[in-house]
């Protein structure tokens, strides 16, 4: 399978790799939201962490990814796109935009879906920790 240049670039130079601490530490931090989606037996696990300021703007984002090149690129791209956005703006990022940006073939669309899911899951985690989670924010149907 041929990868687009952008996928190869993200693979070779992933942006914003890392985390804001060990898993038990970030669990306690109210300014950090964590989204872990996927499963090892499916061949994809994405972990997205967001650091949110008092104004509700995502100041920083870090990712880790176990998965194919397209999954790595999707999550790397997601961190770039959400940094500087408010959590509500970030929630508007759709997987189709990731597909377009990275020229993902149909067989790799699930990688972009995971990236979108990781953004939403991280934001939900942040909101839950801060008592801002509305009923409407939960229970999203996973149509895939």
């Amino acid at each position: 399978m041929a990868y687009s240049e952008k996928v190869i670039d993200h693979y070779q130079n992933p942006r914003n790799v890392g985390s804001f601490g060990a898993s038990n530490e970030v669990k306690e931090r109210k300014d950090v939201g964590v989204g872990i989606v996927g499963a090892p037996e499916c061949g994809d696990v994405m972990q997205l962490q967001i650091k949110v300021g008092d104004d509700g703007v995502i100041e920083d984002a870090k990712f880790k990814c176990f998965g194919c090149g397209s999954a790595i690129a999707s999550s790397s791209l997601a961190t770039e796109w959400i940094k500087g956005k408010s959590v509500d703006e970030a929630l508007k990022i759709k997987n189709t935009r990731i597909v377009e940006e990275l020229s993902l073939p149909p067989v790799k669309i699930h990688c972009s879906v995971l990236a979108e899911d990781s953004i939403r899951t991280a934001i939900e985690d942040y909101k839950r920790k801060n008592g801002k989670l509305d009923e409407a924010d939960t229970g999203h149907a996973h149509a895939h």
Binding site: P14, V17, S19, A22, S23, N24, I36, P40, V45, M46, Q47, K64, C65, F66, I72
Partner: peptide, 10 residues
């Protein structure tokens, strides 16, 4: 890059 490696190390 691997979140699984982090978990393993923890």
């Amino acid at each position: 890059l691997s979140p699984l490696f982090d978990l393993h190390n923890e």
